[in-house]
């Protein structure tokens, strides 16, 4: 497998009330293509900060991150937005769908930003939502959907841009057991069948059980990295 993400010596220091906080401390991490990785650890260990840095949402204080050989740490904000749009899919804990758009429009929206044609957008959005078992909710707005359904739309949205990998920050934290099981099965299936790379941050034991690789953080550093 080829290397997809390579983080070398990354650190992130926050200066909260002038006392420096090392959220990520001189970390090295490599993610291969097609991996199904869970980043775990207690609250405040740096999971979300690490995901933000790997996803190009935040800059490290030091170190560098390469995605498919492209160094994103020196990229300007505008270039980084374009890079994220083409290469990275996001799934958030709170789903964060656009409330005024229907399920299908939420999925189409990403492709619109990629300047894809109307027909292509519509077809792919419908296909993805059907794949996510949301075929009967295409025209529902987020407010009309249950949490698990919203998160499935969010996964479809993350997949819509055909990204190199998907970052999911605590995707099951707000879901009940059945929805979590359902969502994990879907993502696992996509990973197996389409070799889409997933990187999760999670506290959820059920996610950890499904993960093929478990990276454990503590105080901003990796304390274990296990492949199954």
């Amino acid at each position: 497998m080829a290397t997809l993400i390579e983080a070398t010596g990354i650190s992130k220091v926050y200066h909260k009330t002038t006392v420096p906080v090392h959220a990520v401390n001189n970390m090295d991490l490599t993610i291969e293509e097609g991996e199904f990785t869970a980043i775990v650890g207690p609250s405040g260990c740096g999971k979300t900060t690490l995901l933000n840095i790997l996803g190009g949402l935040d800059y490290p204080s030091s170190g560098k991150v390469e995605i498919a050989g492209v160094d994103i740490t020196d990229m300007k904000d505008r270039d980084l937005i374009d890079f994220r749009l083409s290469n990275i899919g996001f799934v958030f804990q709170a789903y964060n769908l656009i409330p005024v758009l229907t399920a299908v429009e939420n999925v189409e929206f990403i492709m619109l930003l990629q300047k894809k044609g109307k027909k292509e957008r519509e077809v792919r959005a419908r296909e993805l939502l059907i794949q996510m078992s949301m075929g009967d909710k295409l025209d529902s707005r987020p407010g009309e959907l249950a949490g698990g359904q919203q998160q499935r739309v969010a996964v479809a949205r993350a997949l819509a841009s055909k990204p190199r990998f998907i970052l999911a920050d605590e995707p099951t934290a707000n879901l009940d057991s059945a929805s979590t099981e359902n969502l994990l099965n879907l993502m696992s299936q996509i990973n197996t069948e389409q070799h889409t790379t997933f990187v999760f941050s999670t506290h959820d034991q059920r996610v950890m059980d499904k993960a093929k690789r478990l990276v454990t953080l503590q105080d901003g550093a990796i304390i274990s990295d296990t492949r199954r």
């Binding site: 937005i81 374009d82 994220r84 996001f90 958030f92 990403i110 930003l113 841009s161």
Partner: peptide
């Protein structure tokens, strides 16, 4: 604010 943050995270540039 959160929604705007998501839009920008997903790839909507500041101009849009």
């Amino acid at each position: 604010i959160r929604e705007l943050g998501v839009l920008m995270a997903l790839g909507m540039n500041r101009g849009r």
